[in-house]
Every structure is written in structure tokens, then in C-alpha cells.
Simulated assay, not measured.
Amino acid sequence: MADLHSTFLEFDDIIKLSSDKKKSLRTSRNSIREDIRDYFDENRDKHTVSFKGQGSFLMNTTIEPLSGEYDVDDGVYIFGKEEDKPTVQTAHNWIYNAVKDRTSSEPLDKNTCVRVIYKKDYHVDLPIYYKTDKSDDQFILDDEVPLLAHKSKGWVESDPYAFKKWFDDQAKSRPQLKRIVRYLKAWSNKKQEDNSLLRFPSGMVFTILASENYVSNGRDDKALLGTLKAIQQSIDDIKFLSANYSCYRPTVDMYENLLDKYSSQGTKSSFLNALDSFIKSGEQAVELESKKDACAKWQKHLGDRFPCSNVKDNNAESSAKVFASPDIIKRDNKSA
């Protein structure tokens, strides 16, 4: 049977951020931090500011996007007394004014962050938090949950660093898990590049689903397949009556179903159909004798970056297993 573990490892090297790109992103992020520190030193005498990275960049699950535009999240934490807490819009204005001259592009004041845009390369999202309690060395680890400046909801509890700690614990003795998350993100990225109208769940959703349904295996192809099947059995309530189409944060807010945003009939069906097709192709791939044929099965879902050109069969002729029937027909009448 075709063993493509080494091909998946090669794929991981292709899609994960290079050390040079990480260095470049950190340099830009740190420059933005200095802008904000300077602004607070000059304009705010009742508040101090600090920072905490968050999201996939900090968890080392960021992938090279097919669009070429990277997304970095850096939490801005404002400290002050309760009575000095600004309005949400005022907090956004402070950060916007601090970074407005950082690049030639005007920042975007979004619902949950201020975005600094580096043209045709990447952007840095700056979610803004308020805390009335500070420890000099581990400010984020105290009992007070930070409040996120959400323009439509007001100040709401949010703790992305707690999520980062949770994932670190999940991956601490399972380094394969981070690769599985990156493979899932590459799959999602490819599907949405193929169809810009298609809405796939967020990277956070895939991170949670992979962590909670992770299936370990000495081969990454089998580990990915096992994890996909476990995810499907967990959330596909169309095929499995015991499944529940839901995904909850392990940290604040633990009662928000993150899949609700992707539960409209068309969005849900498209995602679950794509998941089912991916699984069927994976099942066929691990049973094939020919590595080239198996690689083509995976490449259909992971994209041209999946390095099939480097795969060689031991036999001169393909020894692919012949299926008695074509790929199983899905709900959308497309084969795996």
C-alpha cells in the first residue's frame, strides 16, 4: 500500500512559514508595538499598554496562503482603572491614531480590531483589550479575563492567550498535531481559492476540531485520514444521527458554537460534502499500491503544492488497485 508519509512532510515544509518570513513578520509587528508605546507615552497619563501575540502565528500553525497575503494577530492590552475605561470606539481611535502612519495604506478600523496593511504581503490585526489589573511579569495569567473592544457588542470577555495555552498543552507531546492543523488549513485555503463564494470554517475551528478528534499514527497520511473521519463522525449530523454540528471554544466564551456562523443550508452542506469527498479520496489513497496514483488523490484536495512530481513508484508500471465502481457519488453528485 502507498506510504506517502515523506510526501506529507515535504508538503508541510512547503506550506509552513519559513524562518525568514517569520523574522520579517516579527520585525513589522515590533515596529507597530513601538508606535503604540510612543503614542501612549505622549498622550495617555492614566493608561499603560502592553502586548501579547495570539492566533496561528504564535501557535506555529500559520501556512503560506495561496493569495500571498499573511495575517498576523497581535493583542494590544490597555491597563487602567475601571473608572478610566474608555468607550470601545475611543479605544479603537487611540490605536488607529498610533499606527496610521506606519504604512502607506490607511489602517482599517474593523469590528474587532484595527488592521495595519502592508501592501501585497501581509496585514497585522490589532484586537484591543482592557484590563484593570496588572502583574509586571505575567499580566495575562491573573484571574481577570480581558475585555475585548468589540464595536458592535461593546466590551466583551475574550482571552485568546488562554486559547494559545490550551493548544500548547494539546500539542506538547503530539508534534504531529500541528502538522495536521496545517494540512487542514491548506485544504481549506485551496477550496476557497477554487471558489471565492465558498465559506469554510475558520482556522480556530479547524484547530479545535483537530485537537479534539486527533488520531495519532506513525504516518501523516493515515493520521490525517483518521482525524478527518473522527471529525466527520463528531459533526456531520446529516450522515451520523449521533453527531452534533457544533464546535465550542475550550476557553472564554465556552458557550458560543463557532460553527453557527457556517450553518446556513448551503454553507453547511458544501463544507460537509467537501469533508466527505476528502475522506473518500484519502481512504482510496491509502489502499492504492501506486504512490503516484495515491498522491493524485491527495493532491486533488490539497492543491498543486502537494509535491506529487517527486513521488516515484517502485514498479515501472502503475500497480494501482482497480476499483469495481467509480468514486462514491456525493450529495452534490461529484466524485471523491
Rank of each mutant, 00 (worst) to 15 (best):
S28F: 13
K292W: 02
I63S: 02
T87E: 08
P175W: 01
K300G: 12
T48N: 10
D168I: 08
F206H: 04
L141W: 10
D84N: 13
K110S: 11
S211Q: 00
S152Q: 15
R182I: 00
E69S: 10
L58K: 11
R219V: 02
E144G: 05
D41I: 10
L141K: 15
I238P: 06
G266F: 10
S158P: 07
C308L: 08
K151P: 10
A223K: 03
S269I: 14
V322D: 13
W155Q: 08
I128V: 12
I231D: 10
F271W: 00
Y122S: 11
T90P: 07
Y39E: 02
D20W: 09
E69Y: 12
M1K: 13
F278T: 04
S56W: 00
S50L: 07
W166T: 00
S234V: 08
I180C: 04
T27K: 14
D293N: 14
F206M: 13
F8Q: 03
D20C: 08
S319C: 15
H123W: 00
N310C: 10
S277M: 14
S18W: 02
I95P: 04
P201D: 05
F206V: 07
S202D: 10
F163M: 06
N60H: 13
H123I: 06
Y122P: 03
S216C: 10
K191P: 03
F40D: 01
K239P: 07
E283Y: 00
K191Q: 14
I78R: 01
K46F: 11
G154S: 07
A223F: 02
N273R: 10
R29N: 08
R199M: 10
A162Y: 03
G282N: 04
P107R: 01
L225P: 04
S246D: 12
D84W: 01
T132R: 07
K119R: 15
F206T: 06
T61S: 00
L25R: 01
T62V: 09
S263F: 00
S242T: 15
T62I: 09
W298I: 01
M1T: 15
E82G: 13
P307L: 00
S318Y: 04
I328V: 13
D332I: 05
K222I: 11
K21V: 09
Y118L: 02
Q54Y: 01
Q299Y: 01
K280T: 12
A285G: 07
I36N: 03
H301T: 02
K268S: 08
T27Y: 11
